[in-house]
């Protein structure tokens, strides 16, 4: 099948790319848009390393044909609040509380955690575990990821008050 033009708004910038319509959004983000922060762990929607927001909805980018994301607004780990100069509360908490080890699940974990905290700014430990159950981590045993999200929620709450 020939290539088609697809327009995406990624982290606030509009990109028009010429791609195979069934190309995975994950590959388009990584190779065409050049944002390699979004990772591939399994390629079948199980591990969550490729988590991104599509129009604000938490999605596994490895499962999305790029054509179906045409015209959407996408946010990746590079576009999370504080991912540029000064770190945001989530990133800060993951560094200081030990939520990141090898780092390969971290981008997806941060996006999933951001999604959770947008829906529920003050989650319980059980709600955090439930909210991150679609993101596999093999390094941490999750204890410090849960603590990092608790810590981030606290930092965000302080920033609001």
């Amino acid at each position: 099948m020939s290539h088609v033009n697809v327009t995406l708004t990624v982290n606030g910038t509009e990109h028009t790319v010429s791609v195979h319509p069934m190309a995975r959004l994950l590959d388009v983000l990584r190779t065409e848009v050049g944002l390699t922060g979004t990772k591939e762990g399994c390629g079948e929607g199980e591990c969550g390393a490729c988590s991104v927001f599509i129009d604000g909805v938490l999605t596994n980018a490895c499962l999305v044909p790029v054509l179906s994301a045409s015209g959407t607004t996408i946010q990746t780990v590079e576009g999370l609040e504080g991912a540029a100069e000064t770190l945001g509360p989530l990133q800060q908490a993951f560094i200081e509380t030990g939520g990141a080890q090898c780092g390969i699940c971290t981008p997806g974990m941060l996006v999933a955690a951001a999604s959770l905290l947008r829906r529920n700014p003050d989650p319980s430990d059980a709600q955090i575990r439930e909210g991150l159950a679609g993101n596999l981590c093999r390094c941490t045993g999750y204890t410090r990821i849960v603590e990092s999200v608790v810590d981030a929620a606290r930092r965000m709450k302080e920033a609001r008050s």
Partner: peptide, 23 residues
């Protein structure tokens, strides 16, 4: 002391380069 992970910043911003990120 629990000194924060030194390469932590690159890992939480998506800047860390793994082999598949290299072209």
């Amino acid at each position: 002391r629990s000194v924060p992970r030194r390469e932590g910043r690159d890992k939480v911003t998506g800047a860390a380069k793994y082999v598949d990120d290299l072209h």
